[in-house]
Design a protein around this nucleic acid. Structure first.
Lengths: 228, 228
DNA sequence: TGAATAGTGTCTATCAGACATTATATT
DNA sequence: AATATAATGTCTGATAGACACTATTCA
């Protein structure tokens, strides 16, 4: 193994959630050089005996302060331009996490400086390293996956209403969807959602039925974005 | 950098092509331990100053003997289980390549032992390392991408007929598609293909119009796989 | 002329989008 | 009662699947 060039390997996380009708991204302010004081994706080095998904889950739980990572976690892509990190040759495996809005604000061991930032407030060049591009790729992946998979429910608590699910689509896509057609579509797509049997109470208006995630892993037919 | 665990980083390639109405995968027979003599994906170590896409293109051209990588190349995913390589901690960035059937057989510098293998002849456990899983992921990615992108044309030469394109879909998906509906769909989807203005000659039957790849990057509406 | 392949047309069930209507809660 | 939200129903145009038919070549 000494024959081969030595790399450092990190994981970085694009953690998205929907809160207050805006798509939010979890960012940390870097406390050490390089790029000290700038916003960056949460992440860190992979242990020499640690599997990549384990490293991603570890960073996610550390940064969010949640014992169990609810929601969804998938590999996004690997970024390894030779000059992307001034410390040397660092290849990062980026992960995309979709989480329900957390009841408690972020408070983990490393998360003193972690914050949810609305994605439409991000400006190019604002993030450290090549994290701008990683975030852009993560957003596009999330938007595309909502079309063909039931992953929108990963943004919701275990039980949710059709209106909540619709708000996820509208927020992630930045579009408006007809509530009646959306309701028909969601309840008519096999395995998308399963009735929980209960209903909401205490709100204005007629109570809404609660649903859980259904067994489907892909949507047939897909929920296509409205064309511009 | 000496503080961080040292990894080796490789690229591995899932190279697919359609020939003789069967989906083929490019494999090499390993000439050195570990797993000497077994089939494996083409690939190799990334240079310490080499970008990841450059390493993938380099391996692809070396193994296929083609100066320009026609077709399509995209990152597939990164695999880094601690025990996946007995030589030590090796993380591999896998790439998916879709190529037109090569006029000349594979003949590159390292490619003395490279061969096209029909994918339905692969048996579990046949490949070295964790390459079984990487191939499975690559196949699923290719099958899924044919639904929502015009990438099927990456399997075709620069000019192709609708029937050739249909053969790609049928081969990759392992299904039969109605030639008439397929023709209507392909020519009716904006930007999927552009007429080349010429036609085939010398075959049996009516000559077919030739097309080139269109400008679209995604298909609207998608070409959905028939449900089983 | 017959065989083979390319391409067009037609019919029908299904689906998406637009929008009216009914249902059930709070204030 | 007025208002707000949930859920269902109706209509229309577009699309997918099934399949008849026409077009153009070679043998």
């Amino acid at each position: 193994m000494t024959d081969y060039p030595p790399f450092a390997v990190t994981v970085d996380l694009v953690v998205l959630t929907v809160r207050a009708d805006a798509l939010h991204l979890l960012l940390v302010r870097r406390g050490i050089p390089p790029d000290e004081g700038r916003w960056a994706l949460p992440g860190g080095f992979v242990g020499i005996d640690e599997d990549l998904p384990d490293a991603a889950v570890r960073e996610l739980t550390e940064e969010t302060g949640l014992p169990e990572p609810a929601g969804h976690l998938e590999q996004l892509g690997t970024y390894g331009q030779p000059d992307r990190d001034p410390r040397g040759r660092v290849v990062t495996v980026a992960w995309l996490a979709l989480l329900p809005d957390l009841p408690t604000p972020v408070a983990g061991s490393d998360a003193a400086s972690a914050e949810w930032v609305p994605v439409d407030r991000l400006t190019p060049g604002q993030l450290a390293f090549d994290h701008d591009r990683i975030v852009a790729d993560g957003l596009e992946r999330a938007r595309a996956k909502l079309e063909y998979t039931p992953l929108a429910s990963a943004f919701c608590p275990p039980e949710f209403t059709v209106a909540q699910l619709r708000a996820v689509y509208e927020t992630v896509w930045g579009t408006r969807l007809d509530p009646r057609n959306f309701h028909r579509k969601v309840t008519g797509t096999p395995g998308f959602v399963s009735p929980a049997g209960r209903a909401t109470e205490g709100d204005r208006g007629r109570p809404a039925q609660l649903f859980r995630r259904g067994p489907a892993t892909r949507l047939h037919p897909p929920m296509l974005r409205p064309e511009p």
